[in-house]
Amino acid sequence: MQNHKNMQIALVDDDSDEATIFQIALELIGIDSKFNYYERAFDFLSHIENPKNSLPDIVFVDMKMPKISGQEMIAKIKENTRFDSIKAIIYTAHISEAQKLAMEAMGPYEFFIKPTELEDLIAMLKGIISNHK
Rank of each mutant, 00 (worst) to 15 (best):
E117N: 04
A10E: 02
M65W: 05
K87D: 08
M103R: 02
E18T: 15
P108D: 11
H94P: 06
M7Y: 07
D15R: 10
H94G: 09
P108W: 00
K76F: 04
D57A: 13
G70I: 07
M1T: 11
S33V: 13
S46H: 10
M103Y: 00
E49P: 08
E104R: 12
N53A: 08
L26G: 07
P115E: 00
E117K: 10
D43E: 14
S46V: 08
Q99H: 04
E79W: 03
G127Q: 06
I74N: 03
S85T: 15
S16D: 11
D14K: 11
F35V: 15
L121V: 06
A98W: 03
M106C: 04
T20E: 12
N131M: 02
S16L: 09
K87S: 11
K114V: 11
K100Y: 08
M124Q: 12
L101P: 00
Y37C: 15
A88T: 12
R82P: 02
S96W: 03
Y37N: 14
A75M: 09
D62R: 05
P115H: 00
T116Y: 11
E72M: 09
A123C: 06
D32K: 15
P51V: 09
F60M: 06
S54A: 15
F22S: 03
I86E: 08
Q8M: 15
I86F: 07
F42C: 14
P115F: 00
D62M: 07
A98S: 12
P115T: 01
T92Y: 05
M73C: 13
N80W: 00
I21W: 03
L125F: 02
N50Q: 11
S54I: 13
D62I: 08
H94F: 15
K67M: 12
Q99M: 11
L121I: 10
H47P: 05
T20P: 03
F22P: 01
M65R: 07
T20F: 10
F35Q: 09
V59N: 03
A19F: 07
H47Y: 13
N131L: 06
S54K: 15
E27D: 14
S85K: 13
T81V: 06
R40L: 15
F42H: 13
K87H: 05
P51I: 10
I9E: 01
K67D: 13
I86K: 07
M124T: 15
K64H: 12
A123I: 13
